[in-house]
Simulated assay, not measured.
Amino acid sequence: MSLEEVSSEVGFSGSYFSTLFRKETEKNFLEYLTDVRIDEAKVLLRESRMTIENVAKSVGINDYKRFSKTLSGSLIRKRPESWDISRQREAAKIWSR
């Protein structure tokens, strides 16, 4: 899914759609799409037995290394107060594989 595909589907130019999208969501299209994919990936990882690589593919991310790095950053960045130091180190080991 790309900005061009979505903007074409709704009948706007990419530039105009991008401007409207940012105004409404306070994020650019790629940031929003990545957040949606990461949120879905978290659910799949929590509720299924899928591998991280298969989860990445199922949410539309084909670059496993990028996905792993993005997911790791999302988990650590959004909930640092709930993680103690040992859990942060453990998470870093898992995502660096």
Rank of each mutant, 00 (worst) to 15 (best):
S7H: 03
I52T: 10
L3H: 01
E4V: 10
K42I: 13
S48E: 02
A41R: 01
I52L: 13
G73H: 12
I85L: 13
V10P: 05
I61T: 05
E9F: 11
K93L: 12
R97V: 12
Y64S: 00
E81Q: 11
E47V: 08
R87P: 15
S74V: 00
D35V: 04
W95V: 04
V55D: 00
Y64A: 02
I61D: 01
S7Y: 05
S72D: 08
Y64C: 00
S72I: 09
V10G: 01
V36R: 10
T70V: 10
E31V: 04
S15N: 07
R46P: 05
E9L: 12
L71Y: 03
K42Q: 09
S86M: 14
M1K: 08
E40K: 06
F21D: 03
V36C: 14
F21P: 06
D63W: 05
K23W: 10
K69N: 12
E47A: 09
S68T: 10
D35I: 05
F21E: 04
Y16K: 05
F12N: 01
E4P: 15
L75Y: 03
R87H: 15
L3N: 01
L30P: 14
P80I: 10
E9G: 08
S68G: 06
E26S: 11
R97D: 15
S8G: 02
R22E: 06
A56V: 12
V10A: 07
R49T: 13
E5F: 07
L44P: 06
S58N: 06
S96D: 11
F67V: 01
R97A: 14
E5G: 01
R77Q: 10
V55K: 03
I94T: 09
E26Q: 11
R87F: 15
F29K: 02
E47L: 13
K65V: 11
A91L: 09
T51Q: 05
I76D: 01
L20K: 09
V55W: 06
K42G: 03
S8W: 12
K65M: 13
E9N: 11
T70Y: 00
K23N: 08
D35E: 10
R46E: 14
M1V: 08
G11M: 00
P80F: 04
V6G: 00
K69V: 08
L71S: 00
